[in-house]
Design a protein around this nucleic acid. Structure first.
Lengths: 145, 145
DNA sequence: TATTGTTATACTCTATAACTATA
DNA sequence: TATAGTTATAGAGTATAACAATA
């Protein structure tokens, strides 16, 4: 019997590529988060908006879009749904702009979002071996646009 | 003047969340990779298939889908486009299954994919501070499904 | 019976262009 | 002139259901 490489999974070539594992890891974890937010009847973008405008009463739709990297045109239906769901209200700044703020229902939903995300982030980090754990967020932050 | 917290970017609340930075980092880097693959007239999924079946002559459409987490139903149009582009060929295994293999054109395109991805992975890692760099891939691998 | 490959279909996310009203 | 908000639309990616043919 001649020496040979140990048998390896069919995607061994890909699993070593940072870009591949980054994409797969993000897809896996976002599917998991989506499932958990289903119970709150929220999408990931909805929950992110709630967390972002939580302590502010001055952010416009355009500003939220810039921060979250969501195009202006795609903010309209997003906030439209959230307004229809009674989660946000619009406060005129001038005759062109409106501040997005949380309604009472939005603040209550936000509290549940914080519970879900706290558990989610905890579970996510728990999956990372201890010796790598503290490096994950700083490494990812360096990749942001 | 009373003491106050230092001014922080508007998404400071989010930037500390592993899930948030994971999603944003993946979106950023995949947009970058997509742009680089545009020159080869390939999507990320196309390039991934080329890399996966490079050294194999026995993978079926279903098997590729299982490895890459792409539904069987979505593999059909994907491989259909790649076949129409002359990148892959189908070799009957039995009367039900076909092996997907690279055509000559597919092998040539693969060589270019390897150049592009090598540069891409290099640039990605170069953005990560040295003290975190070696932890990124192992940490992400732990998050895969 | 289970699996392969396929079609049809729908939903989400994303991207561009164009329009209006206002700063 | 530039910006805010909106609408319409198209491209991707992804999900389920259903089907015929074969293992």
């Amino acid at each position: 019997m001649e020496p040979h490489l140990t048998d390896c999974p069919p995607d061994a070539v890909l699993a070593a590529l940072p870009g591949y594992v980054l994409r797969r890891a993000a897809n896996t974890m976002m599917a998991e988060l989506s499932a958990r937010l289903d119970g709150l009847d929220l999408r990931i973008s909805d929950a992110t908006v709630l967390l972002l405008v939580a302590d502010r009463r001055d952010m416009t739709s355009s500003e939220i879009g810039k921060v979250l990297d969501i195009k202006r045109a795609n903010m309209a239906p997003l906030l439209g749904r959230m307004e229809a769901a009674g989660l946000i209200e619009r406060l005129p700044i001038d005759r062109k702009s409106q501040a997005i703020l949380l309604s009472l229902a939005g603040q209550e939903r936000l509290a549940k979002v914080r519970e879900v995300t706290a558990q989610f982030e905890h579970d996510l980090l728990a999956r990372v071996p201890a010796e790598h754990r503290d490096h994950l967020v700083p490494a990812l932050q360096a990749l942001l646009a």
